[in-house]
Nucleic acid binder design. Structure first.
Lengths: 171, 171
DNA sequence: CACACAGTTCAATAAGAAATGAAATCCCGG
DNA sequence: CCGGGATTTCATTTCTTATTGAACTGTGTG
């Protein structure tokens, strides 16, 4: 919830396969991705890839992080889906190798475009429907409620107009 | 997860105590607050207060939303904690009455200050510790990893410097 | 001062989300 | 076109988080 600011320091030293730098990075990205509502395993994967000096295979991730095959596969899928991780070709190697994409801006903007914008649009449609439903309200309430809906519209417009600015700031 | 963009249309018509406008508002704010990692009940409460033409008591909320006493109390507590809802004095009434605070900017900035900023600071500390731990790395890796840590620092600085701008945009 | 009503807290439970792992699918090399 | 490793998928399990409801606290009134 909102009050849980300083959570999860420990992380119980899985198989002590992780050095201090890796641990810090992993914890950091667990926190960061949680802020976006993404599961822990995704933070772990990205964190490890972020500090890894060479590309890692799914197998590496599974073993060093003690996560399952499925979690590794799905986590990578999600991370690739918004460009936070990419597969690099490793000569003569069968397995895929993955690296963290360091261009924060790329996936921040994916996030804005795929998560925030659709919600604003959806909310806009709701506002329309609310407006339409105003008719069925007793006179006394209608005025007040109409004002609220307009307030809501103002927020949404503002949000809409801020998105491009935010995208520009990131780029 | 990230792919769940268009969730939760229905909302199973609890006791049909809610009109269409209220339903829309509630669903909208459930979505919105979920984006910030807050539970459904909080979205419900805020949504109902938002479109209510008069202040509501905890009792009103419990009955119209079919939520428990505890949920109403805690939800209101959280909402008040970041200024999204306030108690208004109702003359001669014993119970507290609550209204939605329509100043989005106020609680957006609370969110930035209480959620985002601390995380950036915490992350900064981690970066320091990572830097310190670099010494223990084999030469080959040290260079690469140092570069990553610096990249990280750049992100954090950028975030830090964007916060005041964001706050100004909202105000 | 005690009763009744309003509100808070918190342990127990229910609901929901993420992780697991086995089965299915996809390739690449022979 | 077969065999086998790599990856994906998804039903089940595990874990986390929200919700409930009952006990507790606080408070104003007769």
């Amino acid at each position: 919830m909102l009050s849980d600011s300083q959570t999860s320091q420990p992380l119980p030293a899985k198989g002590s396969k992780l050095g201090p730098i890796e641990m810090e990075a992993i914890e950091m990205f667990i926190n960061f991705f949680r802020l976006l509502g993404l599961p822990k395993s995704i933070g772990e994967i990205y964190g490890l890839l972020f500090v890894s000096p060479r590309p890692l295979t799914m197998d590496d991730l599974m073993h060093r992080l003690n996560i399952s095959l499925g979690a590794a596969s799905q986590g990578l899928k999600t991370l690739r889906s918004f460009g936070a991780v990419k597969a690099v070709y490793s000569p003569g190697e069968r397995r895929d190798h993955f690296v963290a994409d360091l261009e924060l801006s790329r996936f921040a903007s994916t996030f804005l475009k795929e998560q925030i914008l659709p919600r604003i649009e959806q909310a806009g449609q709701r506002a329309e429907r609310m407006e339409a439903a105003l008719a069925s309200l007793p006179d006394a309430e209608r005025q007040v409620t109409r004002a609220r809906i307009n307030e809501l519209r103002r927020w949404l417009d503002r949000g809409r107009s801020m998105l491009p600015v935010a995208l520009k700031l990131l780029a």
